[in-house]
């Protein structure tokens, strides 16, 4: 118990005492994961919509691939991205290994299928005739698509939350392609692993708490938006 309390005190001290390294690590984590989430949304939402609304040969395989991708183990992603970006690897000339860019690439690979899969599910939950109805009152195809996105915005927010939550908390891929280099690619999760292995539990707990607080704050915000004006379960006597 002593250890935990110490950790919490230390965490408060580090956060509010303005420890510059902790803040830098937190900021880098946010930057990398937010960028990765944003790219995943840009790629995943169109793919999810395409899979939900159109029929083409190979669609079933694509859907199965996306669904499998939703559960990709980060270490496996780390392994393959490492091989690709390795100096002697096929994309080695880009010199990206052990940079934040490499971490963003790995996190996009992790988050993009999650976003695509949840987007597909949220569009499939809409009435299939809704698109026809919108076209039937004179919407252009683009207008209809935009209105459908707005209609599916609540489950789409879940896709954002799941995508971001998946990448900010993963450690395997970040460690492998980023290398946990101090002041360059060290993020909250890799730093937590390092400090724990060094026996610095207080700092590890502090970093862990910051990570939790970040996730909570973001999810609280998005959930608040999502749950506004939602149907309520009736109170039964």
């Amino acid at each position: 118990m002593e250890l935990i309390w110490q950790g919490i005190f230390k965490a408060v001290e580090l956060v509010f005492g303005g420890d510059s390294e902790v803040w830098a690590i937190t900021w880098l984590s946010l930057k990398i994961s937010a960028t990765a989430t944003l790219i995943s949304l840009l790629l995943g939402i169109p793919l999810g919509i395409l899979l939900a609304l159109s029929r083409f040969p190979g669609r079933a395989i694509a859907v199965a691939l996306v669904n499998t991708g939703m559960g990709l183990p980060p270490v496996v992603v780390g392994l393959f991205i490492s091989i690709l970006l390795w100096r002697s690897g096929p994309l080695g000339f880009l010199e990206l290994i052990y940079t934040p860019s490499a971490m963003i690439i790995a996190q996009v690979v992790i988050a993009f299928p999650i976003v695509a899969g949840l987007t597909m599910a949220s569009f499939q939950s809409l009435d299939p005739n809704l698109a026809l109805q919108l076209l039937g009152i004179g919407a252009s195809k683009l207008q209809a698509l935009w209105l459908l996105c707005k209609e599916a915005r609540l489950p789409l927010l879940a896709a954002v939350m799941a995508g971001f939550g998946g990448v900010i908390s993963e450690v395997g891929a970040s460690m492998m392609v980023g290398g946990n280099i101090r002041a360059q690619t060290r993020v909250l999760t890799t730093a937590t692993v390092l400090e724990t292995s060094k026996g610095n539990f207080d700092i590890a707990i502090a970093l862990g708490l910051i990570l939790l607080a970040l996730c909570f704050a973001l999810n609280f915000l998005l959930t608040h938006i999502q749950q506004r004006g939602q149907m309520r379960w009736p109170r039964l006597s």
Binding site: N129, L130, Q133, I137, G138, S140
Partner: peptide, 19 residues
């Protein structure tokens, strides 16, 4: 077809309203 569709209106069995 968009131009023509804008001269028509469809009403379905379900009201299909947006939030």
């Amino acid at each position: 077809s968009l131009e023509m569709r804008r001269c028509m209106a469809s009403v379905f069995q379900e009201p299909l309203l947006l939030n």
